[in-house]
């Protein structure tokens, strides 16, 4: 039986939770189809993550160690993945749908002749056919999409499956990788880190998201306070990213990130479909909006109709007490 290969992304010194979710799902499918499940890690100290990958179900963990991978430039990542894929010849390749993976998915699919099912909410493999459900039309619809191609690449939305460690211990294999920087077709000039978030937005348990209703720095201060009290990552609508009040990295929605926290606060956000596309899978949604007819109330678990400048100071006090 051909194997399943899971591409693991490293961020802030650890394997991304969304990658572990992808690995857990792959392990489940691997068991059902008796396919070996392997993982690949590309990072300056790739080997240090191998044991953890093994404990989430990877039989073999292929490690490519090179500093070049830490800069997210697409050419070396493509070269590294192609090396491993040619070596293990997987039927199914799975990765968490991060920006770095989206950056290479198209080119990789051509290079290794894979069909691609991008940004799926669920997937399975039965009799060699890969099926998935993926949100389309700004998540207004779901599309059941299949591929019977000999090789399929799936990228998975974060929060689609739970990450579960098992008792397994994987074998580590170092894959030699030499990179000549002269081969870089695009050179990195600068990395501008803009999150300001101490918690990774796409994996946060609590997200506080601000929209145009938050208006200005005084509104932002209230939002920041709510986030710090609840240990949340800060998100934003496109409207307040456009005005520069929040960084683009905070944008949630069709253009921005997809989040699925336990608790999502939408403060002064109208709930346009392109925003809802990125947050409707949150478990509990609290919306504060002064317009009782705002569409955000259609998806909110708890909708508070009112002025966020009046409600937030009270809410922050109450939460501080409740969480003390």
């Amino acid at each position: 039986m051909k194997c399943i290969l899971v591409v693991l992304s490293i961020q802030d010194g650890k394997i991304k939770r969304s990658s572990l979710e992808a690995l857990t799902r792959a392990a489940t499918i691997g068991e059902a189809t008796s396919s070996p499940v392997h993982a690949v890690i590309m990072h300056s100290s790739a080997a240090s993550f191998a044991a953890e990958a093994g404990s989430y179900g990877a039989d073999t963990v292929f490690c490519l160690s090179d500093r070049i991978f830490d800069a997210h430039v697409n050419t070396p990542v493509l070269a590294g993945l192609t090396t491993v894929i040619n070596q293990v010849d997987p039927k199914l390749i799975v990765a968490a749908s991060t920006e770095s993976i989206k950056d290479i998915a198209g080119a990789l699919a051509i290079r290794i002749d894979a069909a691609t099912l991008p940004d799926v909410a669920s997937f399975d493999m039965v009799d060699g056919t890969v099926t998935c459900e993926r949100p389309v039309m700004a998540a207004k619809m779901m599309a059941k999409t299949t591929s019977a191609h000999s090789r399929v690449l799936v990228t998975l939305r974060s929060g689609s499956y739970e990450a579960k460690a098992s008792s397994g211990a994987g074998k580590m294999v170092e894959v030699p990788f030499e990179w000549d920087t002269n081969l870089l077709s695009a050179t990195l000039k600068e990395i501008i880190s803009t999150t300001g978030n101490t918690v990774d937005l796409s994996e946060a348990k609590v997200v506080v998201a601000a929209g145009r209703g938050v208006k200005d720095a005084s509104g932002k201060a209230l939002v920041d306070e709510l986030a710090s009290i609840t240990g949340a990552a800060i998100g934003a609508s496109r409207a307040v990213v456009e005005t520069g009040l929040f960084p683009a990295t905070a944008q949630i929605g069709q253009t921005g990130k997809v989040v699925s926290p336990d608790l999502y606060f939408a403060i002064g956000i109208s709930g346009a479909i392109q925003h809802v596309a990125g947050m409707s899978n949150s478990r509990v949604i609290v919306a504060i909006n002064k317009d009782a007819d705002a569409p955000i109330f259609d998806v909110a678990t708890y909708g508070l109709v009112g002025d966020c400048f009046k409600i937030l100071p009270l809410l922050n006090d109450a939460l501080r007490k409740a969480l003390a």
Partner: peptide
Amino acid sequence: KTKVEKTFPPAGRAPGLKMEGEPE
């Protein structure tokens, strides 16, 4: 290489609770 078998509306969320009144 891929085929859309069908499209359908997502499951949707359970109806929520909209609250109006004084901020307190």
